[in-house]
Design a protein around this nucleic acid. Structure first.
Lengths: 237, 237
DNA sequence: GCGTATATGATAGTAATACTATTATATTTG
DNA sequence: CAAATATAATAGTATTACTATCATATACGC
């Protein structure tokens, strides 16, 4: 969900292109809103760093507590467990992407151009220095690439899906699907194409770094953007 | 790796279309070859069932031991830990798929037809009753869809990749990439296209069952096969 | 048939994980 | 200034992911 708050209490807001915005995450995803306290923000920013450093399996609330100098019990007051924290982080990320999609495409008339712009946003690396309310977006995007699959590949998917935990991701897929349908109203597979592209982008980035024989980027002038742009346009055409 | 053993000791072999075959898994992936003992086979078949039932996170060697009435220490003699067991299972699966690819395409002259046949094999569900040397292939394919990502999304990927743990998967990707290159020798992204299709197939099957708003199958006459066949042909053409 | 190797069973133990609970102290707010 | 709230400090529990040891059963070579 994207919430644009104008002239609200300054401390909860972020200056960005002169627009004051806050990314709001579904209440179900925290026991206590981490965006509203210093400790909460420290939990968010340090958990991102620590998950990147250790990988999600080796990451624990105990270790996080040591990093931020707080007992693990304090972290449990914000998040029921590390799995919910991961869903919180991915949810935040997808809302952030949705915000970027909306603002990057708002003045583009051609739906083809809007689709291409959307693929840009899905593929382009986040700038290193983007830090939106205690979230290091560049590091967070590494987590999305390496770990976000684990947020919904569990035996609780169905239950958690009912509670709306994956809404932010779905909204992004829906938004881009709508652009595709504008471009070609009788296209049969808009959601499949979009989710194939999104997951594909993550896989290809991961493969490029860890299993290069499964991809072709790094060869010649191949890029992930071009691959998925060509793929989408050839398919829809 | 596909090893075809003719007239070898009958107990290690499987009758299939009058061909005696055994799927061989890389030695690095077990401490003791589970294909060569009753206990080993029981470990394999019951672990498949238990992982499907519990999900990989909740699956433990202790629980498996209770199911097969053996102490966990006996299971540890075959597999260093459950993560290695998962890699063993996925490796076995990909070698099995490679075998199917080879035999299904061997007499097809047209490379386009061979590509389509390959996509068939990647997308078609395994028949319920296929049981190759203690492996229930249909159940195993559920594990591939839901859990196989976890075999290489860990902080040990690079190390394990060096040891060749993911070779079976890479061979499948390579084999289909070669077909694509026959079809269009200057195609820039054969590996990317194949790995996008393979991972995409798994995601779409998973979404269809758990997160249907991310896909379009179940609507009209949409099928995963047709989606990826159209996608591939439109892209390559 | 006998001794030896090998496979499995039975049992115990350990450090880490994923929590839950309780009490104390500091800070904010009304 | 009192009351509510947030955090710290500490302890405790069941489960997990192993490792180790010793006993027993079976198979195999001579």
């Amino acid at each position: 969900m994207i919430v644009i708050l104008l002239y609200l209490q300054a401390k909860y807001l972020v200056e960005m292109d002169n627009l004051k915005i806050r990314i709001e995450v579904d209440q179900e995803l925290y026991s206590k809103n981490p965006a509203l306290s210093d400790l909460g923000k420290k939990i968010l920013s340090s958990s991102i760093e620590l998950i990147v450093e250790l990988g999600f399996e080796k990451f624990t609330f105990k270790k996080l507590g040591e990093v931020i100098n707080s007992p693990e019990s304090s972290i449990y007051r914000y998040f029921k467990n590390k799995h919910i924290l991961l869903i919180y982080l991915t949810s935040w990320y997808w809302s952030w992407i949705e915000y970027n999609l909306v603002f990057a495409t708002i003045n583009i008339k051609s739906s083809k151009e809007r689709l291409l712009k959307s693929i840009d946003i899905l593929t382009k690396p986040m700038s290193e220095c983007q830090q939106i309310s205690s979230m290091n977006v560049s590091l967070l995007s590494n987590i999305i690439i390496s770990e976000s699959l684990k947020s919904y590949h569990t035996n609780k998917v169905d239950e958690e899906n009912k509670k709306g935990y994956f809404r932010a991701y779905k909204l992004v897929v829906q938004r881009i699907s709508d652009i595709i349908l504008e471009l070609k109203p009788d296209f049969q597979y808009p959601h499949m194409l979009v989710s194939t592209i999104i997951e594909g982008v993550h896989h290809q980035k991961y493969f490029a770094e860890h299993l290069p024989s499964l991809t072709d980027i790094n060869k010649e002038n191949n890029t992930i953007e071009n691959f998925y742009k060509e793929m989408a346009l050839n398919f829809i055409k």
